[in-house]
């Protein structure tokens, strides 16, 4: 196999395209960023099929509880809310399969695309992001960046082994273009702004 490695690299060196092709500088394209990133995030998330939960000033976790419209186990990865199921170091990825709702906190959000970033730090077990039927996500509005260029300046990329931008629920339109949520991953995704 090291033979193939050397053969491939050797062929590349022999066939390299001619001429200098300098590495372009990539701007952040964030000069037109609006002041209200929360509003832009909400608009983008809704376009991607996600929902925003209406906050409750007196009981901050009430919107989360109200979102449980179906019976079934709830797993929580946030200290603000206690679920039915505890994730321990022994929890296997497949143990998450029966979960109906997972409550997570996003590392940050991206206003341009309505994306939520999760890493293994927020997920505890990576499958909590997509084996449950539904996701309820807490997002600190202060942790919303404007666009994807800003997003890739964040520190998470150099810390996590697994990081995902989840932008709305799982979706497919593979049959005649008909939109169906929950093709393989979560069927719905709701976000509660919660510092």
């Amino acid at each position: 196999m090291s033979g193939s490695r050397d053969a491939i690299l050797g062929a590349i060196r022999k066939n390299h395209i001619q001429g200098e092709r300098p590495r372009p500088a990539v701007p952040l394209f964030d000069q037109a960023a609006p002041a209200d990133l929360k509003a832009l995030f909400q608009k983008s998330l809704e376009r991607m099929g996600g929902k925003i939960l209406i906050p409750d000033a007196t009981d901050p976790m009430a919107p989360v509880r109200q979102a449980f419209v179906k019976p079934g186990p709830v797993v929580s990865c946030v200290p603000e809310f206690e679920g039915d199921m505890k994730i321990t170091p022994q929890t296997k990825p497949t143990d998450i399969a029966p979960v109906e709702y997972a409550v997570l906190r996003a590392a940050f959000g991206v206003a341009e695309t309505g994306s939520l970033c999760f890493t293994e730090k927020q997920l505890h077990v990576n499958t909590t992001g997509f084996l449950p039927q539904h996701l309820i996500v807490l997002l600190d509005p202060a942790q919303i960046v404007y666009n994807l260029h800003n997003a890739y300046q964040r520190p998470e990329w150099l810390q996590a082994h697994y990081a995902v931008f989840q932008s709305g629920p799982s979706a497919t339109a593979d049959i005649e273009g008909v939109l169906v949520h929950g093709a393989q991953g979560v069927r719905s995704l709701s976000v509660l702004f919660q510092p």
Partner: peptide, 13 residues
Amino acid sequence: PITQYTSHFRGPR
């Protein structure tokens, strides 16, 4: 605007 999932793998879990 983006795929519903954009997943980054940097090492095994």
